[in-house]
Design a protein around this nucleic acid. Structure first.
Lengths: 215, 215
DNA sequence: CGTCCGCATTGATCAGGATCAATTACATAC
DNA sequence: GTATGTAATTGATCCTGATCAATGCGGACG
């Protein structure tokens, strides 16, 4: 629970009192864009896609949330994006009002939250660079290396990367079509950069991929 | 001074003591990506471009800062992007250490800062949608309407929009080339949506542009 | 006044990724 | 085992925006 790691044990107890565990099945929606935010969440298991939609159905995934991630920053009164479960998800839900009051009462929790927001902002800017200026292969390689980094931080394998999301999700995250994502996966596999395995990839040439991502 | 608007007058005096006014000529650099951040800034005049570079020179502008904007969020120890003055710029500079101490001492300033960060994050996600899923015309129209909105908040005209940045800057912000930006401007002018004037545009059909941006 | 230089516009052609279409792989149900 | 449905892959063609190239425009300066 990254956000809560800064709290003293008595404060944690306080927080526990506010939280209630929730579960969402695959494809279930946690919240939708524009809906008043009556709760915030701390993910404990599973993966969530966060996305914005255009009226004509075009979709941009603005991020994938993994265990430990906090959902509920990018909103004042209403959520700025929709979120739904990619696979079965478990989370701690905090009523918005109680959460808000706690933040007001505990400056170091606010500090922690602000650092988290700042980190998210940095990631968002990195993603702008990716979407605005990188080609399809660079985008996919960056994505795989970022997922590696994130899973590593959660103690998972650094060579076999789990990818719980669909090809369509990856496409909508990288600003590509599903066909281009699929072709680029195939190309990387053909060039012995990766090995495609069920629900993920094995990274065969991290060196080479890193230099592809840098260039 | 948006960030400071929440402070009591005695606190403002405290802040004033920390701040010192600075000026930058056109094209002068305020700070560069990766450089340790020894100061943060509150813009008081002029416009600044914030950008990230790839090793091969490709550039993505992650934002334009206008008077009232705060520079220095997206960094822990080092800046995550570079910034330079588009035109002559005036700002209040705060030494990083003093700023940091003040934030720790004044929770409501931190709260204000956090709200600002959250707002920036929302804008960044909107920009991801633009870069990932919108076409050239939609991108430019969104950009013009956003600038209109921002200038309006600063009390400027809502029909003649100042554009202090070059076509190349706009291209690097929208993930396009300068030629495409120029052609799209011409197309909008040809269709009587805008009138191109020195250092800006006059919006002739806000209705039509809004619907273009929405779709 | 003409030259120069940076910026913007416009035109011609190219290419990366989108679109359209068919096939394959795999899971679940019957 | 076969049928069905969903996701992924692969191929053929198209199109938007990139690239290459030329021209226009205006300000600074000799």
């Amino acid at each position: 629970m990254s956000i809560c790691a800064c709290l003293a044990s008595d404060e944690l107890a306080l927080l526990d009192a506010l939280a209630h565990p929730v579960t969402f099945g695959a494809k279930e929606t946690l919240f939708v864009q524009g809906q008043p935010a009556e709760a915030v969440y701390n993910l404990t298991g599973g993966a969530v896609r966060l996305y914005k939609l255009l009226p004509d159905g075009r979709r941009q995934i603005v991020g994938f949330a993994l265990p430990g991630d906090f959902l509920g920053l990018a909103m004042r009164d209403a959520f700025g994006f929709s979120a739904d479960a990619i696979e079965t998800v478990t989370a701690c839900a905090f009523p918005r009002s109680a959460y808000s009051a706690l933040v007001d009462a505990k400056p170091h929790l606010l500090r922690r939250l602000h650092d988290y927001a700042t980190h998210e902002l940095t990631l968002a800017q990195e993603q702008m660079l990716l979407l605005g200026r990188r080609n399809a292969e660079e985008r996919l390689v960056c994505f795989l290396l970022t997922m590696r980094e994130r899973w590593a931080r959660l103690g998972r394998s650094t060579t076999t990367i789990e990818l719980p999301m669909s090809r369509q999700d990856i496409a909508d995250f990288l600003g590509l079509t599903i066909e281009t994502v699929s072709r680029t996966f195939s190309k990387l596999a053909r060039n012995r950069k990766i090995l495609i395995v069920p629900d993920g990839v094995r990274l065969l040439d991290i060196e080479g991929m890193t230099s592809l991502a840098a260039a």
